[in-house]
Design a protein around this nucleic acid. Structure first.
Lengths: 131, 131
DNA sequence: GCTAGAATGAGACTCGTTCTCATTTAGAAA
DNA sequence: TTTCTAAATGAGAACGAGTCTCATTCTAGC
């Protein structure tokens, strides 16, 4: 359900998300807003992110540690990610191969409503060098 | 680190895991044990599962909701899963295509230490019919 | 059987996330 | 512009998964 009113808080979250280098957790985003002098509440950040994700303006995924990460989304098309587990740097991947494979394998086993979780985590060139 | 002593608790967890139809959460497993009259503690279930996973007797993955799920593992080789989100029924997949793809894409972007999360969730034939 | 110390279990604790509810406020209507 | 009302906010309580602590129990080697 989309919000019916626009608030500076929601806008602040959107902007902060766009400014973020890659995927960020809600907590991290809230911290940044606070550090920047904003008084937005944590609950509001969660709500705003949920809305953005719902509308397709944000992308979300689960980090291997179980935290939900968000990222402002450029393309509304379905895609996957290659995320640096150190700095959050992200590359979007159009994984046609995987899509196809997922659909085919699901069908082969008689499964329906197939959803898939396909994300790659690694160290980006910069962090690889620093390590 | 493997346990140095064998206890009926650990054995109970192992058995319960084998009996489970597919992936189960630690909480769920603990509930089942309790319902079955066992007095095993939750912490012990977590410890036992961690041990099993470490040794390779159990397989773990993150559900889309962020819970860690476990399953007794047949093959020790690396593989992926097609899991029914209703009943937990699971098929193991040897996803050579995906492995290859992951490695290639990672390298293309200059990322190192690539790990991947590739799992399919859907409704198994039985649950599809029941829906 | 004794004994050392590994393993257990109850519950405290952490941390991410969601909920509650009193207060504020966007925005339509007057 | 002022008024009004329900949507949105925010502080903090609540929740749930998972971990940790530590006194107690019990395995396994003597």
């Amino acid at each position: 359900m989309q919000p019916k009113r626009n608030t500076w808080q929601r806008e602040a979250v959107r902007v902060e998300l766009v400014d973020a280098p890659g995927f960020v957790s809600a907590q991290e985003l809230h911290r940044r807003l606070k550090d920047g002098g904003s008084t937005v509440g944590l609950a509001t950040v969660y709500r705003a992110l949920a809305h953005l994700a719902e509308v397709g303006d944000a992308d979300s995924l689960q980090s291997p540690e179980g935290e939900t990460l968000f990222r402002s989304c450029e393309t509304t098309a379905h895609h996957h990610h290659l995320v640096c587990r150190r700095c959050g740097e992200t590359r979007e991947l159009a994984a046609t191969v995987v899509e196809e494979w997922a659909g085919r394998v699901g069908a082969e086993h008689g499964f329906t409503e197939i959803g898939h979780v396909v994300d790659l985590f690694g160290l980006c060139p910069k962090c690889s060098a620093a390590a």
